[in-house]
């Protein structure tokens, strides 16, 4: 189901040129001077895209989600912790063990059904677990970790 897109636009460790949509802070190796790693859409998508087609409690029918694998993102940021604390635009926050990302192909989706996610569509970033593929994920615990309108991540 995965669809890898070659990252033609890899930008190295430099600050993003576009609108910053994600800040990663905390225990990470590849941070800028202020200790924060910032990403724009181009950088995120440059980490390689992965598609999950699944049902979710919040979307009708089977839906295609495309985005970067969380483990690729954290590797890119040089995350050196066990848990991430994710915070949304609406100030919703949830702690997710990093082990989830090694065990499952969890993505940070940027597109739903081929279109970029908007805030109204719970974008621009939405953490999606492969619910349809792994039955054990279909419960409240993982539903709460499926944070949408993701704004920032702190690695602990």
């Amino acid at each position: 189901m995965a669809l890898l897109i070659p990252s033609a636009l890899r930008a190295g460790e430099d600050d993003p040129k576009g609108l910053v949509i994600l800040e990663i802070s905390g225990a990470l190796a590849n941070a800028s001077n202020d200790g924060v790693r910032r990403y724009d859409m181009q950088q995120i998508e440059g980490l390689g895209l992965h598609e999950i087609i699944t049902e979710t409690p919040w979307t009708p029918g089977r839906t295609s989600f495309t985005g970067v694998l969380m483990r690729d993102l954290l590797a890119d940021a040089g995350a050196q912790g066990d848990v991430i604390s994710a915070v949304a635009l609406n100030d919703y926050s949830v702690d997710i063990p990093i082990s989830d990302f090694d065990r499952y192909n969890v993505i940070m989706a940027t597109k739903m059904n081929g279109e970029y996610l908007t805030i109204r569509n719970r974008g621009p970033l939405w953490v999606i677990y492969p619910y349809s593929d792994v039955r054990s994920l279909r419960n409240e615990l993982f539903y709460t970790r499926s944070i949408w309108q993701l704004r920032s991540i702190e690695i602990r």
Partner: peptide, 20 residues
């Protein structure tokens, strides 16, 4: 607008009866 859009995203949502 941000707050409006956030509320919008909340309201315009198909709630899976199995989950909710």
């Amino acid at each position: 607008t941000l707050r409006f859009d956030i509320l919008w995203s909340r309201v315009f949502n198909e709630l899976d009866p199995e989950v909710f």
